[in-house]
Design a protein around this nucleic acid. Structure first.
Lengths: 207, 207
DNA sequence: ACCTGAACACCGTTCAAGT
DNA sequence: ACCTGAACACCGTTCAAGT
């Protein structure tokens, strides 16, 4: 009977034995910790403790610490992808949409600092990394946007959209990293630098 | 007498008691280790062991691991600064010198991977960091080069050279990070991306 | 299936003690 | 001054054992 009740009610109460959704909770707790104390302060033991679960329980869901970090990076790339895609569409694509996308990229980096650091900090590096670094899906959004602008005569047609995309990615990624490292102090400064950059960049790719 | 001899002869022999120049040796060993196995594999104990010195001896020269990493970063920034300065001068400054400087930046990053990762990986982050992130000296070389080009009528005069420099830095830094993270595979690919980028970038800043 | 407790092999860092 | 040895408080990871 007690068992039946437990199975029926999916309440939040910390049962301490069966945790609701440990993988998701671990991911959240990892991001929270990184945001608060930095990646190097993330410890599996700490995560387990704060989640009220034994340390070895964690290994049931993630092979090791590396895997947890990979999951954070993966979530980040998925988030980034949808952020870019929405920005691109929100301004009706074309030139305004493209600028919005760039601004959104920089905003994502300075907002989701912890995700971004894990995504590009070289933590998930090595053989263990599954997808090409800037995750293809997120990168593809950029390539597509450039290709579309080429067919509309907004961007020079004689450039390879993939190489153009690498160029643009390098620019926004550079701004983002500088912002995270503190050369650019505030998010506002980061945005200002992006706006300045975008103007100069546009003249280099316009048809 | 034995003591006098020891004091007089400054030979290289590994005395095991008085190490020649432990600080320098530690720095070299740290860089070597990072190059080989990555920053996360750098351990003070390992450094001491490979240097044939007790672990606690290290603390006589660097306050903690963080301090050793800061030293690596500092050395990197000094190296980068002179690399940029030499490239700028080697091609007679002006536009060719500026392009050489950009190429040298990217080459530095892909060559001195370990230094670069420590310099910008957020490891030296936090309150402990003394200078503004991209070390002012290295950044200043870029600002000066732009200002000089402005007075020579090679670069638009109505832009703040500091903001221009941030823009350029973001671009080369972005390329460097992408190269380190593997989007751009080989050093050659990194250079190609730089060359492509530089053309498009130049039209955005030319007078 | 999912979790716990104890254990192993590592860290960074400190400190009394040696030369 | 510079170094050693032992110790402390932490890690990641594993594994037999419980429910």
């Amino acid at each position: 009977m007690a068992k039946a009740r437990r199975a029926r009610t999916v309440r939040k109460r910390a049962d301490r034995y069966h945790h609701g959704d440990l993988p998701r909770a671990m991911l959240q707790e990892a991001v929270r910790t990184i945001q608060k104390d930095g990646v190097e302060s993330l410890t599996l033991r700490g995560v387990g403790e704060r989640l009220g679960v034994s340390r070895s329980a964690l290994y049931r869901h993630f092979a090791d610490k590396q895997a947890l970090l990979s999951a954070v990076a993966g979530e980040g790339f998925r988030l980034l992808r949808s952020t870019l895609f929405e920005a691109w569409n929100s301004e009706g694509r074309g030139r305004p949409g493209f600028e919005a996308m760039g601004a959104a990229y920089v905003r994502f980096a300075v907002t989701h600092t912890s995700h971004y650091r894990v995504m590009f900090g070289g933590f998930v590096a090595g053989e263990s990394r599954p997808a090409p670094p800037p995750d293809l899906d997120a990168f593809q959004v950029l390539v597509d946007a450039l290709a579309e602008q080429q067919t509309q005569g907004l961007v020079r047609k004689d450039d390879d959209p993939r190489q153009l995309a690498q160029f643009i990615w390098a620019v926004v990624h550079g701004i983002a990293m500088l912002a995270l490292d503190g050369l650019v102090r505030s998010p506002d400064d980061a945005h200002r630098l992006f706006a300045f950059t975008y103007q100069r960049l546009r003249s280099g790719i316009d048809a």
